[in-house]
Structures are given as C-alpha cells and as structure tokens.
Amino acid sequence: MALVQIDNVSKIYQTGEVQVKALQDVTLSIDEASFVSFVGPSGSGKTTMLNLIGCLDKPTKGKVFVDKDRVDTFDRIQRAAFRGSVLGFIFQAFNLFQVLTTYENVEYPLVMIKNESASKRKEMVLKVLESVGMLNQKDKFPDQLSGGQKQRVAVARALVTQPKLVLADEPTANLDKKSAVNVIRLMRSMRDEFKTTFIFSTHDPGVMEEAEVIHTLEDGRLV
C-alpha cells in the first residue's frame, strides 16, 4: 500500500449559506520516499489537500489513509498523537517559536511530544542541524535569522522526530528566488538522506521544477 492513499475525497466548507467545494472526488496515492508537489492557482485546494493528509482537518466525504491508518476517523487526541509520531510540518511563515533558540526550536518536538532522554535529544538535534547547515546558528533566536535560515530550522524541526512524511504548505512563498530553490533542494537532499516522503504545495514554477511528482489541482479537482 502507498504511504498516502486518498479515496474519493471531497471537502465542502459552509460559510453562512454559501457552500465552498474545496476538494471534489479526489483519488490519488503517494509512495514512500517520494518528493511530491501539489500545484495550482490560489483557491485550487492545495492547502485543503495538505490539511487532510496532515490530519489537521477531516474530509466531508471519502477516506484518507496515511501509513496504513485511516486517519479521517481519528478524534482530536488521536490526530495529535499521529501528527507527532508520523508527520512533520513546514509552514509558509516558518512558525518558529520566538522565545526559543534554533537548538531549542528543533529540540521542542523531542521534549514536548517524544519525551526523549536528554542525551538522545542532543545527539538527534545536532545531527539534523548539521544536515541542514544550521549548526553554527544553534544559539540564535528566530529574529536573528534570515528567512532562508528560518526555513532551514523549520525543516530541521520537521525532520528531527524522523517522521515518515513531511508536509510543507508553500514553504518558499516568503523567500526570495535563490533561497526558495535552496530550501527545496535542501528538502530533497533530506529526503535522500532520511528516506522521508515530502509533499509540498507551491505555485512557483521555479520550485515546481524541483518536484519529482506533480499533482495539479484546479477548482478542487485533480487535472
């Protein structure tokens, strides 16, 4: 079975009396260790798709399987536990914790979610920081880093728990072109190093080129 299996999924948002069909009857599968991109214009359903795969939201209809678990039936607590153990997240606005240093931001999931021992945490954090090239910035706070550096820290935070799948919603939207390509290449090299599946959304053609598999969405449908 594929790492991610989406079966006939629809998502409809109700805003007052208006229904917005964010996804309509989407079926797809994503293999392990692949480097996949969802592309499409704004409002095409990219973020909704990532939210459903990332157990952040539930579909109106259809089934979502991630790592053989049917995640659309999970309750809040189960979804939180699943996200902490199987998934990693990279956000468009980096979403680093402002009060924590680079090292502490990367260490956060190991302390608050995984409850790893101090020695194991140190080993894992230093390894992943070295991999993303941020070891020499480990004592800096987020506001002392550039956008590209922040996103590298975010990549490290997403990878430190050794998740099977990393989801990145527009990870390069807040970066200049050079930094954007660098971050995507970093993600791909991480995929090569850790065999982690990466799924990201983008509407930047330069970033799209770096993906190995591209799924295009338009008005909530796969095209």
Binding site: I77, R83, G84, S85, L87, N95, I113
Partner: peptide, 15 residues
C-alpha cells in the same frame, strides 16, 4: 498561530 503550530506538530492538548 503559535498555539496552532504547537498543535499541528503534535503537542497534546494537555501539554
């Protein structure tokens, strides 16, 4: 947003 990030990356509601 920070709470959303904590929750998204798997922090349990109790934490």
């Amino acid at each position: 947003r920070e709470i959303g990030t904590m929750s998204a990356i798997g922090t349990a509601p109790g934490k």
